[in-house]
């Protein structure tokens, strides 16, 4: 059988997109939600040492869903970009918006030029000085970028999680305890599985901390919060 010599660009993009979506759909999800002191990032992650959520800069956190090796490389590139920018200009000039743009450019280029697209979805969160001034960006495998208010989710079950969270979250900003409980319930409802506390990876961007706002929440603390 002769190989087809011509594939239409539409067909090629569609195939790539399908391939990437399939890869991401297999991955577990991550939620970012605003709480009274900043932003909570929480991931359905059974590993205690391989993290999905990471600090990028003073007020910025990163999270990736999909293929580990790919979002890990993007995470490192983001930290290098942020540290370099902070050294060249000043610490306050490092913003999630510019990082999100760089990620969007990179992923867009890879999607259109490489044979195999990245099977990743990224989340960038930046805590603001006041409630309501936080920034949340969701960057898809093809470089498309969405900024969201109050909450967002990435990974395989992102849309179902968001629907649940929008319905169930209270009017006023939740406390940390309320936010963790809400997210745990959302994961359980959407995956229809019991989620153990050890199976949750949580971190906050707490605006009341001085300097670097990022802090991991150890599972011992999650235990106390949920008891």
């Amino acid at each position: 059988m002769a190989l087809p010599y011509y594939v239409s660009p539409e067909q090629m993009m569609q195939d790539k997109a399908e391939y990437a979506k399939k890869g991401i759909a297999k991955g577990r999800s991550i939620i970012a939600i605003e709480y009274e002191r900043g932003l909570l990032l929480i991931a359905d992650n059974p590993s205690a040492s391989l993290f999905k959520i990471s600090e990028v800069y003073d007020t910025i956190a990163f999270s990736g869903a999909g293929k580990y090796s790919e979002f890990e490389n993007l995470r490192k590139a983001g930290i290098q970009h942020a540290d370099l920018k902070g050294l060249m200009y000043s610490r306050e000039d490092v913003t999630a918006r510019s990082l999100a743009n760089s990620y969007s450019q990179t992923l867009g280029t890879i999607f259109s030029q490489e044979l195999k697209p990245f099977e990743v979805e990224l989340l960038l969160a930046q805590v603001g000085e006041k409630p309501g001034y936080n920034e949340l960006y969701r960057i898809a495998f093809d470089g498309s970028i969405v900024d969201e208010q109050r909450m967002t989710a990435i990974g395989g079950r992102a849309e179902a999680l968001l629907t649940y969270l929008r319905d169930e979250s209270p009017e006023a900003l939740p406390t940390l305890q309320q936010a963790v409980t809400l997210c745990k319930n959302a994961f359980e409802r959407v995956t229809e599985q019991h989620i153990t506390i050890e199976g949750l990876e949580a971190a906050v961007l707490d605006r009341d901390r001085s300097g670097r706002k990022f802090r991991r929440i150890p599972s011992s603390e999650t235990h106390t919060l949920l008891s």
């Binding site: 993290f51 990471s54 600090e55 990028v56 490192k76 930290i79 290098q80 540290d83 902070g86 050294l87 670097r212």
Partner: peptide
């Protein structure tokens, strides 16, 4: 001093 503290922070962020 500035470079060294970025160096330590950078390592901490990359390696966890």
């Amino acid at each position: 001093a500035k470079l060294f503290s970025i160096e330590l922070e950078h390592y901490e962020k990359l390696d966890g």
